[in-house]
Simulated scan of single mutants.
Amino acid sequence: MNKRHITSLISQQFGRFASKEFSPKIQGIVNNTYVGLMGLDMSDFYDRSTYKSLNALFTRKLREDRKFSKRKAEFISPCDSYISESGDLNDEDALQIKGMRYDCHTLLGDNFSDEEKSIVDNGKFINFYLSPKDYHRYHIPTDLQVLKAVHIPGKFYPVNISSLKMRVNLFIENERVVLLCESTNGKKFYMVLVAALNVGVMQVSFEPNIKTNSSHLEPTLYEYEDLHLKKGDDFGCFEMGSTIVIIAEENMLELENINYSDVKYGQTIAKYV
């Protein structure tokens, strides 16, 4: 990729609008309109009038953290989302949506070795779709160590269900941040943050050098020797809705019955095998 795609430019323009702080009266109209049109449930958050920009409303934090299982063997949802697909990998292939497969090795990019990518062959995958109405922050699903992070610049196609049905390899074309993690039971898994149209920014709190939807056009690898995070830790947010893909190695997770359902951050979605 040697120049920014038109979807990047559109997202940057929308991001400027979303970050602008209007007068309290105008901002109130903007916030009320967004909450009403998208059907946001604000019961877990501060009043809509307290957010000084549309982007502040997108990236809102919970008033109080959710309660979740402290059991080491339980794996929680990292976000509020819709599970568009989940299940078993066919070798290295996962479902983007029913009937459309993509290659996980390609999704993970070229900064991981073949050996690192092959650990997930015949493992499990979960696709979390965050719509514009959802809580946009993401959390750590289990106690873990982050081994590597890779920022892969790309496009910013919409990732809603209708777009997933129309565009093959959508996750692979879009900009993403890939985290290689090791859980406390010694198993490895990947968390892939996939950008989408409008704003296109993905914040990663432990790595401020990652600047998504920027002029940086080449993949960048970050490696860590002692980066440990706890279940439930808030480690960033999408500025607008997007997707998280979790890909776990074989014999790591036993998934709950979550396919085609809404899940909440903190909900147990799998258990260690």
Score class of each variant (00 low, 15 high):
233 D>K: 06
189 F>Y: 14
212 T>G: 06
218 E>Y: 04
157 Y>H: 03
155 K>D: 15
263 V>Y: 07
162 S>H: 07
165 K>P: 00
246 I>H: 07
146 V>Q: 07
220 T>R: 12
209 N>P: 08
259 N>Q: 14
202 M>A: 01
187 K>A: 08
151 H>Y: 15
179 L>H: 14
254 E>N: 15
207 E>M: 09
188 K>I: 07
198 N>G: 04
185 N>I: 09
161 I>M: 09
230 K>Q: 12
201 V>F: 01
141 P>D: 09
189 F>N: 05
188 K>T: 10
178 V>F: 05
148 K>V: 12
187 K>M: 06
253 L>S: 05
164 L>W: 02
156 F>K: 11
239 E>C: 06
265 Y>W: 01
230 K>T: 07
244 I>C: 03
174 N>T: 04
196 A>N: 00
174 N>D: 03
196 A>K: 01
143 D>W: 08
199 V>Q: 02
170 L>T: 00
213 N>D: 05
189 F>A: 04
167 R>F: 10
202 M>N: 07
150 V>S: 06
245 V>G: 02
233 D>I: 06
254 E>V: 12
145 Q>S: 15
261 S>R: 14
156 F>A: 07
221 L>H: 09
199 V>R: 00
202 M>K: 05
231 K>R: 06
197 L>N: 10
160 N>D: 11
239 E>D: 10
210 I>G: 07
231 K>G: 05
199 V>D: 03
211 K>S: 09
177 V>N: 12
172 I>T: 14
176 R>E: 00
202 M>Q: 03
251 N>W: 06
218 E>M: 00
152 I>E: 02
146 V>A: 13
254 E>I: 09
186 G>D: 11
222 Y>V: 05
202 M>F: 02
260 Y>C: 11
153 P>W: 00
190 Y>L: 13
200 G>A: 07
152 I>F: 03
238 F>V: 04
170 L>M: 01
244 I>F: 01
207 E>V: 14
262 D>N: 15
147 L>H: 12
202 M>R: 02
175 E>F: 02
176 R>H: 02
246 I>N: 11
153 P>F: 02
207 E>K: 10
184 T>N: 12
156 F>I: 07
169 N>C: 04
263 V>D: 07
242 S>M: 01
151 H>K: 13
177 V>P: 14
